[in-house]
Structures are given as C-alpha cells and as structure tokens.
Amino acid sequence: MAEDGFMKVSRRGVLAGGVASAAVGQASILRAQDSSTGGAAKQAKVPVRLTVNGTPQELELDSRTTLLDTLREHLKLTGSKKGCDHGQCGACTVMVNGTRINSCLSLAVQHQGDEITTIEGLGSPEDLHPMQAAFVEHDGYQCGYCTPGQICSAVAVLEEIRNGIPSHVTEDLTGRMRATEMEMRERMSGNICRCGAYSNIAEAMAQVAKG
C-alpha cells in the first residue's frame, strides 16, 4: 500500500504534476478499521467437513482459506492449479457436487458437506479417465499447468451439454443441446491455455464426446 500526499488529485480526476512525464504517487490510505479489533475470535479456526475424491475430510481452517488452498496446501492435492487466484484463468477448476467451479473464488467454509472431485479423483497415471487419456493422445497440453483445470472442465462440459444447459452459442434455446465444436469451444473458454493447445483439446473432447 502506498501512502503519500505527493500526487494532486481533484474530484474531476488526477492532476499529474507540472511535468507531463512526472511519476505520481498516491494519496494516503487510512484504514477504516484497525486490524487488531475483533480479537482472538477472528483468528479462531473454523471446522470444515467435506469429501474429496470420495474421502471424508475434517479440517480446522482459517476462515479465509479458499477451497483451492485447502486442496493444495492442507490436503496436498496439488493437481488443482493456482494460475491467477482471481477467477480469471480456470486452472483451479474442480467439481463440487458434480458442478464445475473455480475453487480459488470459493471459501472452504462455504462447502460444508460438499463432495469435491479434483483431477486426482478423475484418474491416476496408471488408470487414466478417458478424457485424460484423450488429452495424452491428442497432445491437448504443453506445459501442463492449465491441464487439470481443462480436463475437469472438459468432463463437466460434456455433462452440461447432456443436461441440456444452453450456452452463448446455442442457437435454439429450447431445442436439444449438441456437442458441436463451437459449443465445446465456447463452454471451455473459462480455461485459458497460454501454450495454445486449444485446437488439440477440442479434438480430444470431440473424441470423448463421440464415445
């Protein structure tokens, strides 16, 4: 946090000094509330019970702990990735009660009693889920970091299409959903792959969708 009165600001906007190229700092930031208020109770841990990949877990967590950090740091299930921690990349995608979400934008305490499925729960190196195997076959990845999220999404996307959930590219909202290439591409768009494996991922998904 920066704290300085160097920069002149007006209600209209920012007056950036006299020199066009001058760097400007920022006005002081006063804390609305002293962080020591609230006392010990705030630091108290919260009991969280959830089931992860079929195994019941009982944890005592800081209330601030996200579902993603619960998995990665407390349960040491590091298959779910932290790419941005702000819901902007999809690398943390997991299934909660069968529905995919970004685990980085969810607090563990919101998930009491929930059933979580992570990439580790879909399959193991020795016993791959068909979607995992299709990713290997079609080289649907490169660095591999977004891959668990892509695969969790891919599995969920096919399920969403089967369940008739429409998408942005669905032309007939009241008709039957079909796993077309554009449907899959649109529905997968919350999973960014900077290596650019999209075309291969689409092929892997098409193979699994065909069954």
């Binding site: 999809g90 995919r100 979400i101 934008l105 969810s106 999404s153 969920a156 969403e160 919350g190 999973n191």
Partner: peptide, 8 residues
C-alpha cells in the same frame, strides 16, 4: 463470465 463462474 465463464461456465465455472456462472455455476457459482
């Protein structure tokens, strides 16, 4: 948003 975000 995205499918994941819309689910939540």
């Amino acid at each position: 948003a995205s499918g994941q975000l819309r689910n939540k």
